[in-house]
Simulated assay, not measured.
Amino acid sequence: MAKGAIADVEADRSDAPYLEVVLLNDPYTPAEFVTFVLENVFGVSRERATAIMFSTHARKRGSCGIFPRTEAVAFREKIQNLAAARQHPLRCALLPAGDAPPA
């Protein structure tokens, strides 16, 4: 795992009912694919998807939002399946977000 990367299993060690879905930057996944994933998996606008993609690139990770645990796990699975089908190494982590509902 790259220095500073977040393991996909971090959320599995927590009982938090809400999880933050976070995309992890890599030097191989095209920006267009990241934007495609954000638009199609999360239903965000092109502008919002582009902003998250740039954040992911600049900060090495980009937040897709905070969701109930089951929804976050389903999003991670969709992202991993899309990336694998297109042979991109895009990774997604789930981080505990506490007990507060998403804003």
Rank of each mutant, 00 (worst) to 15 (best):
K60S: 14
S14V: 01
S63N: 06
L19H: 02
E10C: 00
V73D: 03
S55Q: 15
A16W: 01
L94F: 10
M53D: 03
G62Y: 10
Q80S: 09
P96C: 01
V37Q: 04
L95C: 04
S45Y: 11
Y18S: 03
S45W: 11
G65W: 14
S14Q: 01
T50E: 14
R91C: 08
L19Q: 03
D15G: 15
R48T: 12
V9G: 01
E39A: 07
L94W: 05
L82N: 08
H88T: 07
C64L: 12
R61H: 11
E39D: 02
Q87H: 11
D12W: 12
S55V: 08
I6K: 03
T56V: 12
A100N: 12
C64Y: 09
G43F: 04
F33H: 00
A7D: 13
E71C: 08
A51I: 09
A2L: 14
D12E: 14
A31V: 10
A72C: 12
L23K: 01
D15H: 13
A2H: 15
A83F: 07
G65Q: 06
A58W: 07
F67G: 00
I52F: 10
D99E: 14
N25A: 08
E47K: 13
A74F: 10
E32S: 13
Q87F: 05
T70M: 04
P101M: 06
D8N: 06
S45E: 07
R86Q: 15
D15E: 11
I79H: 06
F67H: 07
V73R: 14
E20H: 03
P96Q: 01
N25M: 02
T70V: 05
A85E: 15
A11V: 02
A72W: 15
V9Q: 05
A49K: 12
V44W: 09
K3Q: 06
L95Y: 05
A31T: 13
I66R: 08
A83S: 15
L94G: 00
R46P: 00
V37S: 06
P89Y: 02
T29S: 04
R69I: 01
C64Q: 04
T70G: 00
T50A: 15
P102Q: 03
A7K: 10
R91K: 14
F33L: 00
G4T: 05
R76N: 03
D99T: 08
Y28H: 04
D26R: 02
T29P: 01
R48C: 00
R13G: 01
L19F: 03
Q87Y: 08
G98T: 02
A5T: 15
H88M: 09
A49E: 12
F75S: 00
A51T: 13
V34I: 13
N81H: 13
V44K: 13
P102W: 07
A97C: 04
Q80E: 14
T70A: 12
A16C: 04
P30W: 05
E71T: 13
V22Q: 09
R46Y: 15
T70W: 01
D15V: 02
V37D: 09
L95P: 05
R61A: 05
P68E: 06
A83C: 06
F42I: 12
A58R: 15
